[in-house]
């Protein structure tokens, strides 16, 4: 005999009511009514209507769900919306300013740094975080610190080219 998930208690704990969570998403205060078990990723995609942030594994193993939380890149699938009360969340939808694409967005297009596009929002948000951290100097360091974002299409070299371009550009400014 086999049963699915024998260890999980059957008593449903859905009685805990949804609670308002206020996040600043892409500069705007957004109040979401969510139960504690809603991940930040699902809160963005299913409750805030921002599907630009992608779900590729839901377990912190691909990087597609990368967003910036108070300026730092994090995985939105491995945190809960309720834990981010008051935080400033930047998603891919908030990266361009006043219709002007971010230099990384432009560089990604120019370098053909994506094919299917599914890992792209995570790659770009991650690269923004990387540049802000300022810890990667060499190409090898950029590759290592971007390794949290998988690309199954194999656009790796183009992605790193795009990031190096922007990095070198900002270094010269």
């Amino acid at each position: 005999m086999n049963t699915n998930f024998p260890d999980i208690p059957a008593s449903p704990k859905t009685t805990f009511s949804a609670r308002p969570v206020t996040l600043r998403i892409n500069g705007n205060p957004v109040e979401l009514n969510v139960l504690p078990w809603v991940s930040l990723l699902d809160a963005l995609r299913e409750y805030a209507g921002l599907t630009g942030t992608k779900k590729g594994c839901d377990h912190g193993q691909c990087g597609a769900c990368t967003v910036l939380c108070d300026g730092e890149r994090i995985l939105s699938c491995l945190t809960l919306a309720v834990m981010k009360e008051g935080s400033e969340i930047t998603t891919i939808e908030g990266v361009a300013q006043d219709g002007e694409l971010h230099p990384l967005q432009k560089a990604f297009i120019e370098h053909d740094a994506f094919q299917c596009g599914y890992c792209t929002p995570g790659q770009i948000c991650s690269a923004i975080g990387l540049l802000r951290e300022g810890k990667a100097e060499t190409r090898d360091e950029v590759k290592e610190l971007m390794s949290g974002n998988l690309c199954r299409c194999g656009a790796n070299t183009n992605i790193i080219d795009a990031i190096m371009d922007v990095k070198n550009l900002s270094a010269h400014e």
Partner: peptide, 15 residues
């Protein structure tokens, strides 16, 4: 360059 590039880098592309 890919014509759908803008949609893919801004999160507007819907799957």
């Amino acid at each position: 360059s890919r014509l759908e590039g803008y949609q893919k880098v801004t999160g507007a592309a819907k799957y």
